[in-house]
Simulated scan of single mutants.
Amino acid sequence: MTAPYRCPNCRTNRSRFNIIKQEPQSVKMDPQTGQIVEEYTTGMLSPFHMPYKGPEYRVQCAACGLVEDERTFVKFGEQQ
């Protein structure tokens, strides 16, 4: 988060953003009720439970509301 950002949607915002930190929670849910049956800790996932591999941060433009991966905002911030 040390690179300049620019919104790829509204193309004018370069200064107002919301940084969204993603904290995944690995759970097993009951398919009928939706209640959490089991909660997994990092490194203790069941063999059929794939760990989260998405971005650590997402960014929201505070002018137009677009939410994207941080790299998208950084790429547009590099352009003049």
Results as ranks from 00 to 15, higher is better:
residue 45 L to P: 06
residue 10 C to H: 06
residue 68 E to L: 10
residue 37 V to E: 15
residue 57 Y to Q: 09
residue 28 K to H: 14
residue 17 F to R: 03
residue 21 K to R: 13
residue 1 M to K: 04
residue 63 A to T: 11
residue 20 I to E: 04
residue 49 H to P: 06
residue 32 Q to R: 10
residue 71 R to L: 10
residue 54 G to F: 08
residue 63 A to I: 04
residue 15 S to C: 08
residue 40 Y to F: 15
residue 26 S to G: 08
residue 15 S to N: 13
residue 68 E to W: 01
residue 69 D to E: 09
residue 28 K to A: 15
residue 57 Y to W: 07
residue 35 Q to I: 04
residue 77 G to R: 05
residue 20 I to Y: 06
residue 68 E to D: 09
residue 6 R to H: 05
residue 16 R to M: 06
residue 13 N to I: 03
residue 40 Y to L: 13
residue 23 E to P: 01
residue 64 C to P: 01
residue 21 K to H: 10
residue 76 F to S: 06
residue 66 L to W: 02
residue 4 P to E: 06
residue 12 T to L: 03
residue 75 K to R: 13
residue 22 Q to M: 14
residue 28 K to W: 12
residue 18 N to F: 10
residue 70 E to Y: 04
residue 63 A to Y: 01
residue 63 A to F: 00
residue 67 V to F: 00
residue 11 R to H: 08
residue 66 L to V: 11
residue 6 R to T: 02
residue 10 C to E: 01
residue 43 G to A: 08
residue 26 S to D: 15
residue 10 C to S: 04
residue 53 K to V: 11
residue 24 P to W: 11
residue 3 A to F: 05
residue 33 T to M: 10
residue 29 M to W: 10
residue 43 G to Q: 09
residue 36 I to E: 14
residue 79 Q to Y: 11
residue 70 E to K: 06
residue 52 Y to F: 15
residue 49 H to I: 10
residue 3 A to W: 01
residue 8 P to S: 05
residue 39 E to I: 15
residue 1 M to S: 03
residue 57 Y to A: 00
residue 14 R to F: 01
residue 48 F to S: 12
residue 33 T to Q: 12
residue 69 D to Q: 06
residue 69 D to Y: 00
residue 37 V to K: 15
residue 35 Q to Y: 13
residue 66 L to H: 02
residue 20 I to P: 07
residue 7 C to Q: 00
residue 74 V to R: 07
residue 66 L to D: 00
residue 29 M to Y: 14
residue 15 S to V: 07
residue 14 R to I: 06
residue 44 M to E: 15
residue 23 E to C: 12
residue 32 Q to S: 13
residue 32 Q to L: 14
residue 7 C to L: 05
residue 7 C to D: 01
residue 56 E to F: 07
residue 48 F to K: 12
residue 13 N to G: 04
residue 9 N to D: 06
residue 73 F to V: 01
residue 59 V to D: 05
residue 80 Q to M: 09
residue 13 N to E: 02
residue 59 V to L: 10
residue 73 F to T: 00
residue 77 G to W: 08
residue 49 H to R: 13
residue 78 E to I: 07
residue 33 T to C: 08
residue 6 R to P: 01
residue 18 N to Y: 06
residue 44 M to Y: 09
residue 3 A to V: 01
residue 5 Y to H: 08
residue 23 E to G: 08
residue 7 C to S: 01
residue 60 Q to M: 14
residue 9 N to L: 04
residue 8 P to D: 03
residue 7 C to H: 00
residue 16 R to K: 10
residue 60 Q to W: 00
residue 18 N to T: 09
residue 60 Q to Y: 02
residue 21 K to N: 07
residue 49 H to W: 02
residue 59 V to N: 00
residue 27 V to A: 12
residue 31 P to H: 13
residue 79 Q to A: 10
residue 67 V to D: 02
residue 6 R to F: 05
residue 59 V to A: 03
residue 30 D to R: 12
residue 55 P to V: 02
residue 35 Q to M: 15
residue 52 Y to P: 02
residue 38 E to N: 06
residue 35 Q to E: 15
residue 9 N to R: 07
